[in-house]
């Protein structure tokens, strides 16, 4: 299970302020803290804190200050592909591009860039019209992304399909459709593409966030989830990821398995 720490995001107040003041400390603090918590990647998102035209510079700055303190690979999170490219040029380890929808123009922009920088790509099962309601249409978009990987020469393991989970308090009917999508996406190719979810989305604005995240993570792992953008400092949640790996027979049991899951 690949854990992508979600905390370095301009939507959080401390990170937003840090971006406006060019203060590296909060970013570096969360880089170290998330790695200790069990993160394998650090998601990096400026959010609206930085004006669009300044984003390429902002992503360069974020990549540099994070690489000063962490060896974790980065997940560059933006809809601004010039900003992502500016960041990729500085990444010392193969990065993850977050993200591209199943739209031809964006696919043509992002996939060659991923190949050029030896990066992986998160592909969203949506287009301009938005997120499908059912599994069937999600999987159809996934198939377009799989075909694009083949077309542009991206290794199938470097494509992460995100079937897009929505908050359960307002869009409950999506939760089972996403699970069904995960199951089917793993059968689209051999080797299969990998799968990812923005996990915290499922529990937006619900009072029992942690419980909902934990429960959905376990359910999603059982049907083929490979990675999650999530709270890497929610110890119970990381424990679920570690335990899920054991129960799926993906890593070998030892009494101290929780401890070694976090050890690097």
């Amino acid at each position: 299970m690949i854990i992508i720490g979600e905390r370095i995001n301009g939507m959080f107040k401390d990170i937003g302020e840090a971006l406006r003041n060019k203060d590296p400390k909060p970013l570096q603090h969360w880089a170290v803290k998330q790695e200790e918590g069990g993160a394998h990647y650090l998601d990096v998102n400026s959010g609206p804190a930085v004006p669009t035209e300044e984003r390429p510079e902002a992503y360069k700055w974020m990549v540099n200050v994070l690489q000063e303190v962490s060896k974790l690979p980065l997940c560059l999170d933006s809809t601004n592909y010039d900003a992502i490219q500016a960041g990729l040029e500085l990444c010392q380890r193969p990065a993850l591009i977050n993200s591209v929808p199943a739209e031809r123009a964006k696919i043509e922009r992002v996939f060659p860039m991923a190949v050029q920088f030896n990066a992986s790509v998160i592909g969203l099962t949506m287009d301009k019209k938005g997120i499908p309601k059912d599994a069937e249409n999600r999987v159809a978009f996934a198939m377009e992304l799989v075909a694009a990987a083949d077309e542009f020469g991206l290794n199938m393991e470097d494509l992460f399909i995100d079937p897009l989970i929505l908050p359960v308090n307002v869009a409950q009917e999506h939760a089972p459709e996403v699970l069904e999508s995960l199951r089917q996406v793993k059968m689209l190719a051999n080797p299969a593409p990998r799968t990812v979810l923005g996990l915290s989305n499922v529990s937006q604005k619900s009072p029992d966030r942690h419980l909902i995240n934990r429960t959905y993570l376990a359910m999603a792992m059982a049907v083929g989830l490979d990675a999650a953008i999530m709270d890497a400092n929610d110890d119970d949640l990381v424990d679920v990821a570690a335990t899920g790996q054991i129960l799926l027979n993906k890593s070998i049991y030892a009494d101290s398995y929780l401890k070694v899951f976090r050890a690097r």
Binding site: I252, Y253, A254, D255, S256, K259, V260
Partner: peptide
């Protein structure tokens, strides 16, 4: 026993 094998390595390493 693969599980004890792994656990023993963890304990020694600790």
């Amino acid at each position: 026993d693969i599980n004890i094998c792994k656990q023993l390595n963890i304990l020694i390493n600790e």
